[in-house]
Amino acid sequence: MNRLKTALSIGFIIILSVLNYVSADNFNTSIKENTLIKAFNETDAELLEIDMNFTAKINDTYLDLDNLKKLSEKIINKLNIDGLKVDKNLFQEMYNNDNIANYYCEDISQSNDLIQLTIWGKDKYKRTITAIISSYKDPYDGNSETDLVIDVVQEYTKGLKKTIDEISNVYSSFNARPEITTCIIGTFNGKLKEDEKIKKVSKALYSINGRKVEGFFNDSLISISAYSPAIDEFIYTGSNKMNINIALRYNEYEDKTYIWIGTPIITIGY
């Protein structure tokens, strides 16, 4: 079903399928997320937000638009997205408004073989939620499937495990278990010197017994892939295990240095 993976707008699905994601049977989200928070706290960065991505196939059937809309209503209820549905453009204009939690919007894209319905909204805990339901049928071999991607952004570390458990329960209702990637984003005032950035990364890795696997360095960006035994899951990059990704980049417009710490990789733009 490679055509489906290409069609989806969340690119990390492709990355994880290529890198061979491995998860231990005794999966423990609290250990993984606490390890990530521990590494982040060692950098002394100011927390901006935490982004959590979930993805899984929820059935082996193709849903037409009517059934996809019915499914979206169920998912909206499960995600506790309340309020009035509004036009997407109006929703984007109101995005920073305190009352945005009272509204949500939908967008539908459709072709002969793929229907994708996207939901944007906030819940009562002010978490920003994006849900993408994609249903696909292969015109050549007759196979079909429906996938669900949920992205949750919150601006606090409290209740992180609760958030993950809640979203995982949505997938459990479809007898599915999602792949999960988590990324913590923070900032430092001003532009950090090269040795300061390296020191931040080193402290973060040392706190979780992390070992550098590979890295990329230039004047504006540092990106490090590493492996920590504190986290059960890992992916392969070449023949090496990795489950931590750390990046730092300076934003000249804001005069801030951003840091991203993700597991197993950073799946959002930086």
Rank of each mutant, 00 (worst) to 15 (best):
V86H: 06
E49V: 02
D66A: 11
M242T: 15
V201H: 02
S228M: 10
C105I: 01
T61E: 12
V201F: 05
T29A: 13
I50T: 11
N2S: 07
R177Q: 15
L192F: 04
G159S: 04
Y250F: 14
A176H: 05
F27G: 05
M52Y: 01
S30A: 15
V22G: 03
E33T: 11
K203N: 11
G11C: 03
D123E: 06
Q154T: 09
Y136V: 01
I133W: 04
I180P: 00
S207T: 08
S228A: 12
Y156M: 12
Q116P: 03
I224V: 15
V18I: 14
N96D: 14
K88P: 01
I100Y: 00
D25N: 12
S225H: 14
I76C: 03
K122V: 00
L8V: 12
I132R: 03
L68I: 10
T187I: 04
D141A: 08
Y270E: 14
T163R: 00
N41D: 11
N243D: 08
D51W: 01
N245S: 15
Y253S: 14
L192C: 05
A45I: 11
Q154C: 02
L192G: 02
R211S: 14
K74P: 13
N77S: 14
L16E: 09
K32E: 15
L65T: 13
S30P: 05
N218T: 10
G186F: 00
Y21F: 13
I231L: 02
E106F: 04
